[in-house]
Design a protein around this nucleic acid. Structure first.
Lengths: 356, 356
DNA sequence: GCGTGGGATGCAATCGTTCCCACATCGCCC
DNA sequence: GGGCGATGTGGGAACGATTGCATCCCACGC
């Protein structure tokens, strides 16, 4: 533990002033009003720009606010107005770039509309998601965008009059806006691509949830098989519990017991695991086993061979969700919109004909 | 744009109830009190657990709160108590896993201490950082953890009596807690590793900022050269502006004009760019050029060859920052702590002897 | 019988804004 | 000259929780 190199005297001397300021009461609207010789009402009108204020009064007030470094107390404002310009966003895992990029898209759009994004991650835990929803209800968020984990959060928010937009998945038992992709089609395209190459034994790694995402991907996998009149050996379908715990073991087992010539990993985490397992077993991609991923993350292009994958427009999903929410705030009673974006199959070099 | 597959009638029927609820006024403490036949004061004491409340009264109140789905209004509470249990976190770029993992570490620790993390990304823009700081001041955040972009945000927060912990870099002109790593040592180790392998022309890609991180890494690069009594050809040192704009061009130029046998990319974005440029020029790693990165992100292990890198304990930095902040909240007047974590050199297969 | 003290409760003020309303001051037109 | 809009201002009641203080009740000891 050693200090870095900003000279300490400098810290000290500046610190003196700062700690004096630190002791002082925060500046309130009343202070500004007093400073400018008006009432708080006028100060409020001047700084928020609603209602009549004479130009000289406004100028004095704005100057005073500037001079004293006034920052309006958001709690007081929210309390009075009974709503805030904060939008809550709940994702499952910040460490997963899919969600991070989604959130980035949301933020971009919200910022343009002058809303603040309040982001939190629920680690795919029901309890944490619920706690997050409660927190957003507590701060009277104007709206919430979430990748839902369970059924309870959206109703809780609805009960508080907070509009919810679901993104990536749909779970709520009530009509709410949502942005999803056509998972079935994405998975069907990916599977069809493998079938076209001649694969007949395609392993499917899919999250073991009731989520619409995974259900859709599973349907797509099956319908591609049906279209090609290829029967699915059920041993090839591997549902994998949350957090991809034990995924590795299951993938090893799949390779050992079901002899797939290709693997379709239905999300980026499973793709990462599959990639590692194939490496570890010394299997060549696509020489021994072809691999198709879901989600297009930067690493998929960087590994060798680059991964064929079903690309989702992550940032665009975020932006759409934000736009849907903004529209909902304008028209609370409008019928819910479900926006379904299209994924696209990105063929790289991890897929080829099956070995003979 | 086509809808997915939750039956629509189901949505409709549940929706009727929900939209009725939606219209209703949020439940207040007074409602709970009335329901349980007590005063609001008693209700407050019962639900917050401060002060005398008889057991039967408490039970009635808790039950009523549960039944009506009461969620305390955070604005009212914050307004009255003049502080909240929200901690603001500002990072530069959510899309960069370094910051995402840092934030995840922060959140983990804060959650355990029953604080909420309010995360926002400033895209390395001074104005956005300032707006974020202002927003945190407005909600009377209990504290703020930030990877600072410029000098102004911390003083603004200090003026509002909000403690700040800087993480990753140090910038503030006032004494505040900070968590950093020993950048100089990390860079020195990496450079020494290359020098040991026999490299004499080591390109350095470093962000062109005044940040303590990059300054430290540059110093480490130079001091390793000094230790080995190797002169640095200044053409090998490439400072690269923000957002890595034009980085690719500069890296091409470095390879063309300065003939390095190794490149040390002083952050993960630059490493990614360098990796792409080397690929594109058909240069073998490490056959033609060795490559060392900074930050250990998952992709660095997955590419072929795996990247030798200076690993930072990202989640631990986040946890430490959160702990420092929690300690600061307990003891506002304690002298500032600078915690300096140690990076470690992770040798993989992207480094080897220089070509002859 | 009367203080005493602790458990339990409610009243009312308070936090800092907003915003409705009443009031004041202007022309300006009939 | 007296209304009548258009401006501009300030008073004061909210918003919903917390909390200091006064009060009340009751058991208990003397």
């Amino acid at each position: 533990m050693e200090a870095e190199s900003i000279p300490f005297e400098r810290l000290r001397s500046v610190g003196r002033e700062a700690s004096d300021e630190l002791r002082s009461r925060p500046v309130t609207l009343a202070d500004i009003a007093r400073e400018a010789g008006t009432s708080p009402s006028t100060a409020s009108r001047a700084l928020s720009g609603r209602g009549y204020v004479s130009t000289p009064a406004r100028e004095r007030l704005v100057a005073a606010a500037e001079r004293l470094g006034y920052v309006a107390n958001a709690s007081a404002r929210t309390l009075k107005q009974r709503t805030s310009r904060v939008i809550g966003v709940v994702v499952s895992d910040l460490g997963n770039q899919f969600y991070a990029l989604l959130a980035a898209g949301v933020e971009e759009t919200l910022r343009e509309a002058d809303y603040q994004m309040f982001l939190l991650s629920d680690n795919s835990e029901r309890a944490e998601e619920l706690a997050g929803a409660r927190a957003f209800a507590a701060i009277r968020a104007a709206g919430v965008i979430m990748a839902p984990v369970d059924y309870d959060a959206a109703p809780l928010l609805a009960r508080h009059g907070i509009p919810v937009v679901e993104v990536d998945r749909r779970l709520a038992n009530l009509p709410c806006d949502a942005v999803v992709i056509d998972n079935e089609r994405g998975a069907r395209d990916a599977t069809a691509h493998l079938l076209d190459l001649g694969h007949r034994r395609i392993g499917l790694l899919v999250a073991d949830t009731e989520w619409t995402t995974d259900a859709g991907r599973l349907r797509g996998y099956r319908s591609a098989h049906a279209d090609a009149a290829v029967a699915v050996d059920e041993r090839l379908v591997v549902p994998i519990g949350f957090h991809a715990r034990g995924a590795e073991r299951l993938i090893h087992a799949l390779l050992r017991d079901a002899a797939p010539t290709a693997i379709f990993a239905a999300n980026n985490l499973l793709a990462e695991q599959a990639w590692h397992v194939l490496r570890r077993r010394g299997l060549g991609i696509p020489r021994d086993v072809s691999l198709v991923a879901f989600d297009d993350l930067p690493w998929m292009e960087m590994v060798d061979p680059g991964l064929t994958t079903v690309a989702q427009p992550m940032a665009e999903m975020g932006r759409s969700a934000a736009e849907l929410l903004l529209r909902r705030l304008e028209a609370p009673a409008a019928p819910p919109t479900i926006e379904c974006l299209q994924p696209s199959l990105l063929v790289r070099r991890s897929t080829g004909p099956p070995p003979r």
